[in-house]
């Protein structure tokens, strides 16, 4: 039974990289979807629902992250995560971002 797979790539542009707070927001959001979500940085990949694994990706400025979701809501998940990534990882101002509730 093939589950839908959706994959995209985002670039980290802020100085702090995928720091604790962005990682936390990312993990919180990924956790809302049924799909399994993996994020890879070069050849290292992490479960997007695990803060330990996500922070250990050690994705600094300039890293390209591949976000891959597999499951019924894969498309939704990737779309939401991409939106969050663009918001919190594109500028050096990451503080005010409060993750959006998904419907």
């Amino acid at each position: 039974m093939a589950e839908p797979v959706v994959e995209i790539e985002v670039e980290i542009q802020n100085a702090e990289g995928l720091h604790m707070r962005p990682a936390m927001q990312f993990v919180d959001l990924a956790g809302r979807f049924a799909s399994s979500v993996t994020v890879s940085n070069n050849d290292v990949s992490a479960d997007a629902k695990s803060i330990m694994q996500m922070t250990m990706l050690a994705a600094g400025r300039g890293s390209r992250l591949r976000i891959r979701a597999e499951g019924a809501d894969a498309a939704l998940a990737v779309e939401a995560l991409k939106e969050l990534a663009e918001k919190i990882l594109s500028s050096s101002e990451s503080r005010p971002a409060e993750s959006k509730k998904e419907g």
């Binding site: 604790m20 707070r21 936390m24 993990v27 695990s50 803060i51 330990m52 694994q53 503080r95």
Partner: peptide, 23 residues
């Protein structure tokens, strides 16, 4: 102070991370 609250929030995410505990 939001920063401090964030620190606690991150730590508690770590402790709730099943893959961390499993390790």
């Amino acid at each position: 102070e939001g920063k401090i609250r964030d620190i606690f929030a991150v730590h508690s995410r770590f402790l709730r991370d099943k893959s961390f505990r499993k390790r």
